[in-house]
Computed example of a mutant assay.
Amino acid sequence: MVVIGILIALQVNNLNEERKREIKRQELINSLIIDFETSLTKSQESLKETDKLIKNMDLFSDLLQSKNQVSVDSLKSLATAFFRMISFEPSLTFYSQAKNNGDLELLESKDFFVKVNQFEDRNTMQKKLMDNFLQGYSTGYIWELRKSVGSINNLKKDSSSSFFWVQSNTETHQEYYDLMTSPLAIAAMQTHKVLNESLRFDLILLERLSNEILSILKEEKEVVK
């Protein structure tokens, strides 16, 4: 009877420990879902803004050489897109905490770890794109262009005012055209468009991976041990 009593006590203790572990696992899953839902929203917003920049870059290139001249202010407003890049920082507070304290071992899905590793790798790549963009202001084409024109503000317009599709002064328009079709300006604009297109690609993949990770987490949440 003593042995049986000990075995029953051990079984009850094991059940209690398993119950506590399951509660902790569900709390972890809920926290991770919050992380990746927030990151998904942020990546979608960044993608939307990046799409706007690329659209303005294409429109600028078309209008710059258009026979229907537009105001230089309008061109400068569009040209601002070449000197911007949308930063993206995922919200992974709970994930980082769980990774540091070893709580991720509560998850049994191997797919989760595969997808999260892919997410982290892709996020590292998009951060490098931002670093390349910023370096351009100190060592790259933008730096050379700044030395040539004196200030980037001579090429762009920071305020997002509405465009005025009006006939501009021919001489002023020609001067701006000559400035923006110089080899340095073309190199800088092409480089930054490529960087933004690469960022767009990364954001699309991050969005897809976030959705896949959320799907895995929600499936695991339904599995009650």
Rank of each mutant, 00 (worst) to 15 (best):
V166I: 08
S87D: 10
F88M: 05
K76T: 00
D202K: 10
K20C: 00
V149Y: 14
E175N: 15
N68A: 03
S159Q: 13
E22M: 08
Q167Y: 09
Y176G: 13
I23L: 14
T93K: 08
I6W: 06
N16Y: 11
S43Q: 08
S148P: 03
S215F: 08
I213L: 10
A98Y: 03
R21L: 09
R25K: 15
V166D: 11
L209E: 09
T191L: 14
I216V: 14
T139V: 09
I204G: 04
L179G: 08
Q44N: 08
L63A: 05
L179F: 07
N123S: 08
D178T: 13
V194D: 11
V2W: 10
T172F: 08
E212F: 07
K20L: 07
N123Y: 13
I33F: 05
I33Y: 11
R84T: 05
T93I: 01
F112G: 03
K52Y: 03
L205K: 13
I8Y: 15
L145T: 07
K52H: 02
L155M: 13
W143Y: 12
A187H: 07
N169G: 02
L59M: 05
E222F: 03
I216Q: 04
N30K: 15
A79S: 08
T191M: 12
S61I: 02
N101D: 13
R21T: 14
N154S: 15
